[in-house]
Design a protein around this nucleic acid. Sequence first.
DNA 1: GGAACGATTGAATGAGTGTTCATCTTTTCA
DNA 2: TGAAAAGATGAACACTCATTCAATCGTTCC
Lengths: 136, 136
Amino acid sequence: MNTHSIVPGPTLDRCEAECLHPAQVRPLIGRVIGREEADRVASTFALLADPTRARILHALSLAEELCVCDLALLLGMSESAASHQLRLLRLNRTVDRRKVGRVVYYRLADQHVRHMFADGLRHAREEGHTPASEAS
Amino acid sequence: MNTHSIVPGPTLDRCEAECLHPAQVRPLIGRVIGREEADRVASTFALLADPTRARILHALSLAEELCVCDLALLLGMSESAASHQLRLLRLNRTVDRRKVGRVVYYRLADQHVRHMFADGLRHAREEGHTPASEAS
DNA sequence: GGAACGATTGAATGAGTGTTCATCTTTTCA
DNA sequence: TGAAAAGATGAACACTCATTCAATCGTTCC
């Protein structure tokens, strides 16, 4: 079967009929995460997959609490851009905010994300990480 | 200082002059990850921030080794789309491939990514995860 | 040799998104 | 009361990127 087709979902029948290795694939049917769960996982990682948000989260993991003004100055970005990203992080319950007068202080709300970010940073630092050039 | 400005990099002078809380910000200058490193971290997470790649990586973490044909059937996607994503993962040294005749077998190459993916999956499963609705 | 097949690749399309600019809200202070 | 500041927000723009479609490469089998 070449290139593209209708691409229906996997069934045991289709597996037996079309798989190159039915014995390998059969036990996997129904065990691989579905599209909805994959969307949630991807959204989780997408929060960390932007350089600006990564720097914001790193700064907040170092400082415990920062206002938008100081955060923007520290990262060398506009307050507008910072506010937009902080809003996104806030809607995903990754940061919390505390208003004092006209100043708004942000802090990390999610220890899970803190942990995941630390993992990603360690990973990025360990490898030589040369995204280009062939391997095989 | 309102909204947007030239947004130069942070310096001790600018911190003292313009920060709302210089004492908070001063010790952070130079400690927050820079733009290049943030790019690398973001790229690392971006690999996992796509539902299709997430499902591919999950399938490979369950199966140890799969050919493109079976993988596409198992995930209900076209072989072309699978091949495109596998190429991206390969260039980032996340998967390895092994050619046998005209069949190409892919497997996870990076235990780090396997670990990070497991974390993200756990995170996405634990929380109620309602990305919408206000908090504050 | 030629047909069938697994896999790859390039161009094109469409959706998603990060930043900028302008505007607006809220609070503070003179 | 009015101006200035901190922050938020919406529209617009540019850019990235995942998928599709079509074509191609390399291998196997008749």
